[in-house]
Structures are given as C-alpha cells and as structure tokens.
C-alpha cells in the first residue's frame, strides 16, 4: 500500500466498509477525515516534488519539501501517535477526537505552507533548465491517458476533468469549495503544475474544513461486531496519486471479508510509463517516473 499516504488508505477502507454496511458517519468525523486526507495529500506531494526535482538534479527542493513534510508528520503524530503508517480511522468514525488546540496548529501550518509553496515555485516553475527538462517530455493526450487507465494528477495533467473528490464526493468534500487543477499540454511540466496547484487547493480545503469544523459525536452508531450482510461494494477515493479503489465481497457469515481487492493508483499509472518514454532519452525516464509519482509499495504487493 501507499506508505507515504497512509491516512488516505485508512479513510478509503473505512468508507468502503461503511458503504457496504450503510453506516452513517457523523459530520464532525467526516470533516476531520477531510482534513487528514488533505494534509496527507500535501505530505505526499511534498515527497513527490522533492524526489522529482532531485531526479532532475535540483537537490535543494528535496530538503525544503521534507522540512515542511516534517510539520505535517508532527501534526499526524499528535493526532494518532504515529508518523508514517497510521491507524487513524475507525469504521463509522474516528478513534479519538482531535487533541485540544490541534485545529489551531493546522491553521498555523497552512499559513507557513502558503509561502513555502511559493518558495518551491521560485526554484522551479520559471527555471529555464527545469522548463527544458520537463516541457514537451512525455506528452500524452487526454483520450490516450484515459484509455490507458491513468488516474489522478497524471490524467488531469492531460486536461481530463476527473477527480473522485468532485465526481463522487466522499468524506466532506461535497461541502468544500475547491477547483480542480487541469493541465493542457499533457507533458511533464503540466503534471508538475497540476500538483503544485493541488497544494494550494488542499490548503484551501483544510482551511475551510478546520474553520467550519462542526461540533458533535465522532463515531456513529456502529454494531459491536463488524459483520456486513452478504453483498459486495466498490468505493474509490482520490488518493494523492490518483483513484484508490477498494472492492469488498462479504458472505455475511464472518467478520473477515470473503474477498478484498485494492485498485492502487501507482500500479495503474505505471502502465503509462511505457507509452510516455517513447522517443525520449534515458535521462528523461527518471523525469517521467518522477512525474507519474509512484510508490512502489503500491505497485508490487
């Protein structure tokens, strides 16, 4: 699984089970889930921008991005005790309410992050070498990208307006105002711009969710034993890498799923590499792998 975006996987799995059992999740829990998902998106994108830039030879961005990722990991640590692989969700809600003052710290982080994103952009967005290394590299049209089953920022970089958060809202995304970042050319540079814009949109969502955090319970009415009735369901969420889908079949007899399958975005996106590298140099392959943003834990399971 995606170990650099564990919270997203937590949310995805819990929501799938909730969908299967038709559980109601309290509004406060859904808001916190939204905050966690977006914090996780920023953390994952921080890792991406650092390693992507490192692959192209700019090493400073890597350390800058990790500096900010550290702040997010601190927030997660305060929330659930772990820094990388969390156990931050419960089916039907949250294990614990947010610690006192945590929401203020999240807002403080947003204020810091705003200027830091500008810092990354100063180093890269208009840098001539960066432009030469990414513009026109690995161009893929929207139709082709959709045909290959690419998802997430890679698909949006080619201008296809597909975002699970917008199309099939989960958590509290239906109550959030945010824009979908879209590319036009479908090259490495556009995929980069899309993710940079997603940083900003994520901050926007976090601010809305934190400021409008409703009061109320954090866990809904959940039966003692999670034993869904026989049936199956598929539920997808927008992980930082793309569409992360869960498919569960229950035979209604036990607490273990009869069948469970994950659709990992990195695995699907990596299929596109073969098409993207065509006609480019070896040096571009590292840039392209960076622009797809894969986590190999999700590819090879």
């Amino acid at each position: 699984m995606d170990y650099v975006a564990a919270a997203t996987s937590n949310v995805g799995y819990c929501e799938t089970v909730e969908k299967l059992m038709q559980l109601e999740v309290p509004r406060r829990a859904r808001y916190v889930r939204t905050i966690l998902c977006e914090l996780q998106r920023i953390a994952s994108h921080c890792l991406w921008v650092g390693t992507h830039a490192m692959d192209i030879g700019a090493m400073t961005v890597f350390l800058y991005a990790f500096r900010e990722r550290e702040l997010i990991l601190d927030l997660f640590e305060e929330f659930c005790g772990a820094r990388l692989t969390y156990n931050s969700m419960r089916i039907g809600g949250l294990p614990l309410d947010i610690p006192p003052g945590w929401d203020k710290k999240v807002l403080e982080f947003c204020a810091i992050m705003d200027s830091k994103i500008d810092e990354y952009e100063t180093l890269l967005t208009h840098n001539r070498i960066w432009l030469e290394r990414t513009k026109g590299i690995g161009v893929i049209t929207g139709a082709e990208a959709a045909g290959l089953g690419l998802c997430g920022p890679v698909l949006r970089g080619s201008g296809v307006p597909r975002d699970v958060r917008k199309d099939e809202p989960y958590a509290a995304y239906d109550e959030m105002a945010f824009d979908m970042a879209l590319g036009t050319a479908g090259d490495t540079y556009d995929r980069y711009l899309v993710r940079m814009e997603e940083f900003r949109q994520s901050l926007r969502i976090i601010r809305q969710a934190t400021e409008g955090l409703p009061e109320g319970p954090i866990v809904g009415k959940v039966p003692r034993l999670i034993k869904p009735a026989a049936g199956e369901t598929y539920h997808a969420i927008e992980s930082p890498k793309g569409e992360l889908g869960f498919f569960i079949v229950s035979d209604g007899k036990s607490t273990n799923p009869y069948r469970f399958r994950v659709r990992p975005p990195s695995f699907c996106n990596l299929q596109g590499l073969r098409r993207l590298v065509k006609g480019h140099l070896v040096a571009d392959v590292v840039a392209l792998i960076g622009s797809i943003d894969i986590v190999l834990g999700e590819v090879d399971r």
Partner: peptide, 10 residues
C-alpha cells in the same frame, strides 16, 4: 544548490 541538471543533448 539552486539549479537542476541539464540533459545531455541540451
């Protein structure tokens, strides 16, 4: 510390 790397043909 600042700049990315050029590609060979560039």
């Amino acid at each position: 510390a600042t700049l990315p790397r050029y590609r060979y043909d560039q």
